[in-house]
């Protein structure tokens, strides 16, 4: 970008104006989400918040129906957006770090969880309500999908390329770490949530270092299962042959 700019000022002008053209093409739902989030600290994840957001945008209060799912849709849409933001920040910072000092898995994972909480920070006092909404049986499926795609994104950024059953185990393990750190964070009264950050680091460390043990355990279990199977089939064979 800066190279082009050095060559001709005209190109950069036209580029930036087309960029501006792109950025004004935000969908009404996105605009509505932004307006609603401004009201969340005061009104919570509620229908009233959506109605107020419509009014803030100079729209009829009936425009709260832009999110037909109501308050849960507000939470889901925010979670999705915050996850996307976290993932792209994380990708940028890891790319930079990778070049400078090399990448450690546990750092990327911990950084991912911390960056997410940083984005949730303005809504910390209201977050327990969002957690409750997400946990309703009818909402749990979509919430889980958002969370799983987020932990998957972090693992991918950390350079995980496993294709075995460990793929699932790793994601579930990180999901558990993410959810427990979130609950710690909600009640964390230390300055700048230091306690939560320490919690994340500890959890991730034990996750990554414990990983090898789990992996070995899985391997030995697999070996044991194989032995049992071959013993059983040889017993069966000899039974069929009349001993």
């Amino acid at each position: 970008m800066s190279l082009i700019g050095l060559r001709t000022g005209r190109i950069i002008n036209s580029l930036s104006s087309s960029w501006r053209g792109l950025s004004t093409k935000v969908s009404i739902e996105d605009e509505f989400l932004t307006a609603a989030l401004k009201r969340v600290p005061e009104l919570g994840w509620t229908q009233a918040c959506l109605v107020q957001a419509a009014k803030d945008l100079n729209l009829s209060p009936a425009a709260h129906g832009l999110f037909p799912g109501g308050e849960v849709e507000l939470v889901h849409r925010f979670v999705k957006r915050s996850h996307q933001e976290t993932a792209s920040t994380l990708r940028k910072s890891t790319k930079k770090k990778d070049k400078e000092e090399g990448l450690r898995t546990e750092d990327v994972l911990a950084e991912g969880l911390k960056a997410r909480l940083k984005i949730l920070l303005p809504y910390r006092d209201r977050w327990h309500e969002a957690v409750a909404l997400q946990a309703f049986p009818q909402n749990a499926k979509e919430s889980l999908q958002h969370d799983l795609s987020f932990v998957d994104e972090i693992w991918n950024t950390a350079g995980d390329d496993s294709v075995d059953e460990a793929w699932y185990a790793k994601r579930v393990a990180l999901l558990t770490a993410m959810k427990s750190s979130e609950l710690t964070w909600i009640r964390d009264d230390t300055e700048e949530q230091i306690a939560t950050n320490e919690f994340i680091e500890r959890t991730i460390k034990s996750l990554v270092f414990g990983w090898k043990q789990i992996h070995d355990h899985l391997e030995s279990t697999k070996a044991m299962l194989l032995t049992i199977r071959s013993t059983a089939s040889s017993l069966l064979r000899s039974y069929q042959n009349g001993y």
């Binding site: 945008l57 100079n58 729209l59 009829s60 209060p61 129906g65």
Partner: peptide
């Protein structure tokens, strides 16, 4: 007849 943001259902 709808105002801006008004909803047809």
């Amino acid at each position: 007849v709808l105002r801006r943001g008004g909803r047809f259902m």
